[in-house]
Design a protein around this nucleic acid. Sequence first.
DNA 1: GCATGATTTTAACACTGTAAAGATTAGATC
DNA 2: GATCTAATCTTTACAGTGTTAAAATCATGC
Lengths: 196, 196
Amino acid sequence: MATHDGSPRYHHGNLRPTLLSMARALLEEGGPAALSMREIGRRAGVSAPAAYHYFNSLDAIAAALAEQGFAELSEGIDAALAGPRRHLLAGGIAYVAFARANPGLYRLMFGEGFQAYSKGNEAIRGLRIGVYRQMKDDLEKRLTPGDVPNAALFLWSLTHGLALLMIDGQVEPGADPDAKLEDILKLAGMGLPAAR
Amino acid sequence: MATHDGSPRYHHGNLRPTLLSMARALLEEGGPAALSMREIGRRAGVSAPAAYHYFNSLDAIAAALAEQGFAELSEGIDAALAGPRRHLLAGGIAYVAFARANPGLYRLMFGEGFQAYSKGNEAIRGLRIGVYRQMKDDLEKRLTPGDVPNAALFLWSLTHGLALLMIDGQVEPGADPDAKLEDILKLAGMGLPAAR
DNA sequence: GCATGATTTTAACACTGTAAAGATTAGATC
DNA sequence: GATCTAATCTTTACAGTGTTAAAATCATGC
């Protein structure tokens, strides 16, 4: 195509990151099911097979996005735990905040909707385990050692479940979600309220 | 095709339930992404468009399956709560047990992977809310009224998250899953263990 | 026995992921 | 600067998908 002005040239020059960026936009627009090789290429101004120079499959793109997601999630938790006024629930709050800010990406990271994962993508499973390990590492500074594994799984289940329910719109609207989030996480520290 | 022996005739005679049954098998074999109109028809011994006489779309089949799932889940929880030795956690245990027994179906019920849901399928959202209401109804017999909404969301988040982590194979294997499940749910009653 | 309506089929369209083969171009080497 | 090479991208093609439209088949009531 045209080459003299600013219009697209044969060599894109920056295709790989562009593809990932377009894919990520698509992901947040329509969820994991909206990811499409042809649409990603279209948005990058490139024909679909061009993407295959950088990714073996659509699943490979999904895996790369998931990897990004896990890195960002981990950073977010770390930052929350390193900040001032760090308390037991700061990590949980950061966790759910990430999911709410990146719902499509979060679903991709933990969904099975994609072949990559049902086919037993061990890399993704490992990245997920990293989340658990991060929680465990923090709890080890706070609890007696024997309590840590179950406490970590407890916290992970709670935050994971709450994150999904929130991004699925299952938490009654009207209430301030941030306040709700804190209320629920506080229950993790105290346990269910006493019977009447 | 042949009509004199037991081989398939033109009129299947029992197609709608057969389609659902085949779809459900497919769902448990390969997850929600494995659902395919053509494959469902193939397994029912019928051509794909035949299914359109009973369902408007693949999403409609998915929705019907999800409906089945919510009915079964609700029954399971009710049975657990009605049984002897009913305690606070019986419902939670039944909840996770259902998910572990029907992982594909559970993912369909709560996944976004399907257009039906991302397109804002209000029916499904309502069925999900039914789960929350069921938990709330039980807690209302146990807790002081003001505590109920948050306690129910807390319990739902925990069981939902734990169910998904378990069927995604993210809970360290080796340990007995049933024991693990009880351990985690017990923490819901007590709260996190005290700091050391 | 025949017409009607329900049920299912074949054929077709627009879309998808991906493989193969060829065109284009950037950059190194002379 | 010209040429060769390797990287990059395009066109073409294939097999699969969900779905629609039209035609074929059958069960049933009169």
